[in-house]
């Protein structure tokens, strides 16, 4: 039994080392952006948020419009928990000048998924102490699971292989975090009632949102909180949005709401699906937002 345990520990250490080596050597792909955002980017304009940030904000357009070096650190399925953890890592290295936080409908909803997706931060647990608190939100047992050297790379093997090859062409360094979508809708927008179904507000998320704002204010970073376009008309009130707007207003932060922009609501061809614009839509939206931000920066 002891010999068996020693064999398991040996393989765990060796394979864990190999995984770590290749994880941090990725040149493209799904996990490359996460590592680059945490460890390398020095861009002065950073875009935070989930898939709607990653797929709707094109850094190159922001750079052209504002002359500020930009990078998109958005990631699929994440919430403010991930965004704030990432901000802490960034602020440990340098202070960006401008931050855009893409805020989604139901952004404060209580959801287990928001905690599960924090697994993308596991490879940084031992090397980035500022991320420990966020990672340990996943479960009270997380620190014990992390005694294993392989566990931080759980489910990442295919992504790491792809990231070390040219197998996956999307997600290269020159894309600066933006991932384009190519689909096109061809129907009229649905009506979505934002007040149903009722959901619980996650106080941890609200707290992290407030901390995100506080940290930006402390470092004199110009923060813009943005709701990018959706392809559906809305009725009812999303309590997350009203709370996010109230907190932003209290802190004198601009909350730019493009969620019901008429141009986008009339143009299904600009959308890949109802919650993500396609490349054409992203180009138009990024130019619109960059121009708005440029004006606001000039007035500040």
């Amino acid at each position: 039994m002891c010999a068996f345990l020693l064999i398991v520990i040996f393989f765990d250490l060796v394979i864990g080392k190999v995984m770590a080596h290749f994880y941090f050597k990725q040149i493209s792909g799904w996990e490359y952006f996460t590592r680059y955002a945490i460890e390398e980017t020095k861009a002065d304009l950073l875009i935070f948020g989930a898939s709607r940030a990653q797929k709707q904000h094109i850094p190159a357009i922001f750079e052209d419009s504002t002359n500020i070096d930009s990078y998109n650190v958005g990631k699929d399925d994440v919430s403010i928990l991930y965004s704030y953890a990432l901000l802490k890592s960034v602020l440990k290295r340098y202070t960006p000048k401008v931050i855009i936080l893409d805020f989604e409908n139901k952004g404060f909803v209580q959801s287990a998924v928001s905690y599960e997706v924090l697994s993308c931060l596991l490879p940084f647990y031992k090397t980035h102490p500022e991320l420990k608190e966020t990672i340990e939100m996943r479960s009270p047992f997380e620190k014990y699971k992390l005694l294993s050297s392989i566990y931080p790379y759980n489910s990442l093997i295919i992504k790491i292989i792809a990231g070390n090859t040219t197998f996956y062409t999307k997600g290269k360094k020159e894309d600066k975090g933006y991932i384009p979508l190519d689909g096109k809708l061809n129907r009229s927008p649905y009506v979505v009632n934002l007040s149903t179904p009722n959901f619980e507000i996650d106080s941890v998320k609200v707290e992290q949102y407030q901390l995100f704002i506080n940290d930006c204010k402390k470092r004199n970073i110009k923060l813009f909180i943005v709701r990018s376009p959706y392809y559906f008309k809305t009725i009812g009130l999303d309590s997350s949005i009203s709370l996010a707007k109230t907190i932003a207003a209290k802190n004198n932060i601009d909350f730019l709401d493009y969620s019901t922009n008429e141009l986008f609501l009339k143009s299904p061809q600009l959308f890949n699906d109802t919650i993500h614009v396609n490349t054409t839509g992203a180009t138009i939206f990024s130019a619109m937002l960059a121009s708005d931000i440029k004006k606001r920066l000039a007035n500040k």
Partner: peptide, 24 residues
Amino acid sequence: NWLVRSLFYSFLLIMILLTGVFDG
């Protein structure tokens, strides 16, 4: 041979750590 048996079950455990779904 205990080594062969141990390697087989180590392989299963390593696969669990490497590719198991631990959430949800």
